[in-house]
Design a protein around this nucleic acid. Structure first.
Ligand SMILES: [Mn+2]
Ligand SMILES: [Mn+2]
Ligand SMILES: [Zn+2]
Ligand SMILES: [Zn+2]
Lengths: 147, 147
DNA sequence: AAATGATTTGCAATATTGTTGCAATATTTT
DNA sequence: AAAATATTGCAACAATATTGCAAATCATTT
């Protein structure tokens, strides 16, 4: 896996402290992060506005991808090395555990294609499964993020 | 299809002006509505708070269902008559048109089941397809909601 | 390594969105 | 129609998001 430095370089971004720190959080995190997780993380001291701008930049650069939710938040998770600006490769299923509230990328579960009515032209498909995750069926203590 | 009055009755809800008006909006709408669509609709004069509470009540009563997005909004669409409180039957695909920004329930396209890794217990699955809708391939004028 | 130019950051101000308690009003039940 | 129950609107507040701009940081050139 690439180092933060390389990831930023490869994306053509300046290598700044904020960006490295936020990338570190994603590497350390179990599962996806919301803006609030980052902003409120104990060891972090980055302005809200910078967090907003960093997340946006990372999405546009193919470093992280977004996961849609029904609670007025957006979740973000690291992309595979193969993602590029404007051209993501993240058509895997996302799993939201309703017990521990963690969201996992199921990298090995591809989103199936589905036949649409005539005239609908698909470009990108997201699939979000809610349920109980493997950790919550046979539980053990959980690290960051705590929600 | 049921009348507003019957829908509210069947759900065990009081039949109020606000609720009938908001239900009317959903019937008139092409596609899903966000809170903001309702609040800002020209002919409507219902307090923000009432709109929030009405949407929440409708979801809990199985009158509307939520559609996840990646833009800090939640979309809502009418459920089928067969939905009940706490037990929705809306496992159809949702289509978000990136041209006209309308979101449609593809009622006839069921969400496929997908094999998850061992230990993950699915309860509910959402599938959101982004692309170009049929109206935008062979366009004609569009009514509410305008976004 | 210092100077230069370009980019990013933090702050302040503002805007938008969401929540809560409570009195007034509307609806349902008796 | 009166009583009981539920809903609504207002006000106050809280949380989240956006913008402009000056200061700080980073990349590039010398
Ligand atoms: Mn993912
Ligand atoms: Mn739907
Ligand atoms: Zn879990
Ligand atoms: Zn369209």
């Amino acid at each position: 896996m690439l180092q933060q430095f390389e990831i930023l370089k490869k994306a053509g971004l300046s290598v700044t402290e904020s960006r490295k720190t936020i990338l570190d959080l994603f590497f350390a995190a179990q599962g996806a992060l919301a803006h609030a997780d980052i902003e409120k993380h104990s060891s972090i001291n980055i302005d809200r506005v910078t967090v907003y701008r960093t997340l946006q930049t990372f999405v546009e650069s193919g470093i992280i991808h977004q996961i849609p939710t029904t609670d007025n938040t957006i979740l973000y998770a690291l992309c595979k090395d193969s993602c590029e600006a404007g051209h993501h490769h993240d058509e895997h299923v996302h799993f939201i555990c309703t017990t521990c509230n963690k969201t996992n990328c199921l990298d090995d579960v591809m989103v199936p294609t589905v036949k649409l009515p005539n005239g609908f032209l698909p470009i990108q498909t997201a699939m979000i499964v809610k349920g109980t995750c493997i950790d919550c069926k046979s539980p053990h203590p959980q690290p960051f993020p705590q929600r």
